[in-house]
Design a binder for these strands. Structure first.
Lengths: 225, 225, 225, 225
DNA sequence: TATGAATGAGAGTTCATTCAT
DNA sequence: GATGAATGAACTCTCATTCAT
């Protein structure tokens, strides 16, 4: 009976994840509203009714999808950030591209599209995302920038702005993968995104390094219109 | 009767634009699939039936919305780029933040969200967007970067990558406006985005300027993991 | 255009009642839960969707059905009770059977079945029924009984109990019509219920009249077990 | 092992009754169509699947519920009616309230609601009910009325009508218990129904007793409208 | 031209019933 | 025998679209 129970139990235990995987794919690809719940079930290899044994509604499924897809990656990132040697700049240049490459290649990369799309319709999603993703993510990068300023690797600058300058293209890359990229219109450069990611992070960090004429602010035009 | 006719004519002539405006707002806010066509009609001040006098289906309405919202802005950008004096860096620092501020504040800023969301569902949209928006937009920036390299303002670098480094945060800003921003969770910094835009463009361009040890590539970590 | 408007308008105006009629029939016949909303629509000669233009849900339809079916009859009864001559007993003997015959023959007779069945599931229905039907109905009968006691036509007795003795069989008759009666198992006596109604009211009132040995209470067994 | 087997056997033997009890409660409370079969199983302390080991379908369960709930009571009534002394009126006044009080207080009282509700949907139920309940029940009362007329205790009258006058309020009382009564809207008088039952039976029988002017018919109004 | 009543395909969800364990 | 995971037909309700007026 142990074997018997196991076979069924194994299926049952795997179901939630299988359903989440199927749902993530479809929600990202077609949008939440445009995805029929039966499609999710079928892609997960079960029938319509079975979906509702595990998630009480399509909306709850959405929340679970987003939550679990991000939870793992966030934890990974946090772990990776610790126990690294080198200057703050080196840390950023090492960890960020590596971690982001993983995210980009995993299905979790689609979550950004999903979040941006559905945040307005499900406000509690916004709070979850702000609290669990934006805040810790921003903090990780901001800490290194602060440290870099403290030790003189970087000039003084507006850390918050720089965080966005660094991070936003990484997110855009994920969005791109699941919009233009998913239409078969892959720009070659973005097919393998790691070089771009490294180039981007390095470029921004270069802009932060001290230089002879450094005024403390980036080189803004005197008449910004 | 001429006056009456004229008045009615005026309304009639304004209809398509009013419908497009209403549709853009709603599609951006709730998503295409989750927006009911009657809502669009009501917000445009007409009845359900009237919508169908101007656009044969909801899908055609979507295409018209995207097409027209971007058309004007693209043209503006092109015009603004010409007839400007100064170094390539100064041009970018002047034009880009100005133009983007306008885009950001206009309803057209929502189109990016819409495009990212619906591209997969309506592939012809992808081609239109790539041809009419990405290509000319990238070209405008790329030209200046090439010119900057030619005249020695910028060091040698991968122009394509830099274009993305510059432009992606600007697009993200628009996405943010219509996702987290629309949930009332506006981060103060992004409430008035112009300073950030200027900071960002300046920061990246700073990373491109010559420096003693410049090798032509940004300062990449020797062991990129 | 007046004629045009009228034709469509007439249909639209008649819809709610047509839907209520259809719903009453079906809910009574098959029960609320066992009636498909499309059946109601079809019997009313419209499509599924049209039903929802007039009633926002099946449950609201149920409430409307009950409310309107009883409202009319209650008002009729109240009107009939006034402006009648004769002793209280004669009034009861005249009005009650007449009014009840009308109720019995009308579709409203089915509401009792509906109410008894669905009261538990929709508690607000219970309050409506108690307030709008039971209370005024009981009061009408009770008043006459009180008057009859006052003028000596009836002996002293428990009015509340007697009201139920009089009224309950009338209600049962309606229930019977829509249960056994609707199964084709019509007992002949109940096919034409007026004689029974008259017999019943008269019988109970006879029990109330004074008699030599009257003790004020009905003739209860000395040892009621 | 014998003990273990016995214990299990006992449970197994009790199952059908436990299921019937649970089903009766739920069917009465919520209606047959609105009761989920799993609810029945859970209330009976078994699993969904087990229910189907004992009853092949929900519908069969319904039939069994009705059949068995009434069977016992009918038999009891028949037994109680025999071996009683006294005039027919005294018998009625003694047995009927006593028996009915038992029925009222037992779960079987709900069957009337169930029967009225579901008779139309399951016609064979109607036949069963007419044959096994209405006929024997009416006969029991009718016999006493006939006997009463024969011995001069009652005046001549329409026995069939009188049977209904006597019995219908008793049934209504049961319906009331499971409709308004179950909504917490218990009218005090009906909370303890025995006094009402006695009052009612006595009242009707009083109407049947001889009196000086008795014409054989109840005191009907000369102009019954 | 403009309306909005009407439609019916289709979506989300439920639940009686089955059957491998 | 007992279970409860799984199924899929059936139900309530929605909404893009049509068309008589």
């Amino acid at each position: 009976m142990s074997a018997a129970t196991t076979a069924r139990q194994r299926r049952k235990d795997a179901r939630p994840q299988e359903l989440l995987d199927a749902a993530l794919e479809l929600f990202v690809e077609k949008g939440f509203a445009a995805t029929r719940s039966e499609e999710v079930a079928v892609r997960a290899g079960v029938s319509k009714g079975t979906l509702y044994l595990y998630y009480p509604s399509k909306e709850e499924l959405l929340k679970a999808v987003i939550q679990q897809a991000l939870a793992a990656k966030i934890a990974e990132g946090r772990a990776m950030a610790q126990g690294l040697q080198g200057s703050p700049g080196d840390k950023l240049l090492t960890v960020l591209p590596h971690w982001w490459g993983e995210v980009y290649r995993s299905p979790a990369s689609g979550v950004f599209k999903l979040v941006i799309t559905e945040m307005c319709n499900f406000p509690e999603l916004a709070q979850f995302y702000a609290r669990e993703v934006i805040e810790p993510g921003s903090a990780l990068v901001a800490e290194q920038l602060e440290a870099g300023m403290a030790c003189g690797e970087f000039r003084r600058h507006d850390v918050r702005s720089t965080v966005y300058s660094i991070v936003m293209p990484l997110i855009m890359l994920c969005l791109h993968k699941h919009s233009l990229g998913a239409c078969g219109m892959v720009e070659p450069m973005l097919a393998d995104p790691d070089p771009f990611i490294r180039h981007h992070v390095a470029l921004v960090l270069d802009g932060l390094r001290h230089r002879p004429d450094a005024t403390g602010a980036p080189h803004t035009s005197p008449t910004p219109i």
